[in-house]
Amino acid sequence: MNPTKGLVAIYKMQGCGNDFVFIDNREYNVPVSHMSEWAQKICRRAFGVGADGLVFLENSDEPALDYRWHFYNADGSRAEMCGNASRCAAKLAVEIGLAGPVHTFGTDAGPIRAEFCDDGEIKVELTPPQGLELNKPITLKDGDDEIHFVNTGVPHAVYVAEDASALNVKELGALVRYHDVFAPAGTNANFMSIIDRENVHLRTYERGVEDETFACGTGAVAGVVVANALGLTGTDVRVKSSGGEILSISIEGNSVFLKGKALVIYSGNAVLESLGLTLD
């Protein structure tokens, strides 16, 4: 194996427990037609690098964008948006010289504006929430119930529970994710408890990961949008994730902001032969 051709530089990052692998695709030019396969093999835990998603960063031909990304879930499905990955992307883009500390990048959901904050956290302005539906009838495991829905770049159902920590999120999340009322695309499923008007606890079953994750940025935004619309919270809310970390959500008119930590865990080289991948 050619040691140069057979290695691809990767960055492993995490935002509130959501972990991702990033590739600077300016160097490798992996075609879009191959990206799904790369995501499935690189994100596979134990046999690959292991991650919730794989992100390719590359130059954009749109003057208003500093760069664009291609985001894939661990199962190889392409996603329009991911809130925690967007904060990681913004941090990495600055570190590898792709953009400055305040910049805009392109996603399938639309442009995302990002900035470094004085406390070291990353703040992103997501695309405006779409399609808010409150008190949507749904039949779950224990019979008829109500659920809420909003698209915050990707579709999210939100279930308000007295104690989200007591729920079997993997079981209930799968029921919601594949429920007929959200067919054919399916939805992410969030389970939220209201602590007070400034704090909520939220757990998310993510479409494409097909399990509960430690956090979900667009899910946290969806939860706060729903809670605020129901009159349960204000417009500045701290969301405690399954991993115990905090995401800060702010609603300002039609704009919604997500703020939190984004960390590079390590950088290194992936051996493509071991993953069953090539650059050819």
Rank of each mutant, 00 (worst) to 15 (best):
L167H: 07
A157I: 04
V150F: 04
K170P: 12
R207Y: 09
I147W: 02
G106W: 07
L126G: 06
D144V: 10
E210W: 11
D144F: 11
E206T: 05
A157M: 00
V200Q: 01
R207C: 12
C216L: 04
D142M: 07
T139H: 15
P101S: 11
V226Y: 04
P137I: 06
V102F: 08
F191W: 09
A215R: 01
A114C: 06
F105C: 02
A189F: 02
R207M: 04
E198V: 10
A183Q: 11
G120L: 07
R207H: 12
C117H: 05
L172S: 08
E146L: 14
F191R: 01
N228M: 04
V224C: 03
D142P: 07
P111F: 03
F149L: 06
E146A: 14
E115R: 14
V224I: 08
T187L: 07
G223A: 08
L132K: 04
N188Y: 06
S193Y: 01
A99F: 06
N188L: 05
A114K: 01
V169D: 13
A229C: 02
D163R: 08
I194M: 09
N168H: 10
Y205H: 04
V224K: 03
M192Q: 14
K136C: 14
V176E: 01
D119N: 06
D196E: 13
D211I: 01
Y178N: 10
P128D: 03
F182D: 14
L175T: 10
D196F: 00
D196V: 05
V102H: 14
E212R: 05
V224F: 04
A215C: 07
L167D: 07
T218K: 00
G173T: 04
G100V: 10
F116Q: 13
D142V: 02
V209T: 03
A222T: 09
G143L: 02
K141I: 14
S165L: 08
A161P: 00
N151L: 00
V124G: 10
T187F: 01
H201D: 15
P128C: 03
C117N: 13
Q130W: 12
G217A: 07
N199C: 05
F191E: 01
N199A: 09
E162N: 09
K136I: 12
F182I: 05
P129E: 06
E125S: 11
S193E: 11
A157F: 02
Y159W: 15
G110R: 00
P155F: 05
R177I: 14
E133Q: 09
M192P: 13
E162S: 14
R113G: 14
A222G: 02
N151S: 08
V225L: 06
D145A: 15
K136D: 15
V200A: 02
I147D: 00
N190S: 15
N151T: 02
F105A: 08
T187C: 05
V160L: 14
A174H: 12
D180V: 08
V154C: 11
V124I: 13
L134V: 12
G217D: 07
T213N: 03
E133N: 13
A220T: 02
I122R: 04
A99R: 00
G217Y: 05
E133D: 13
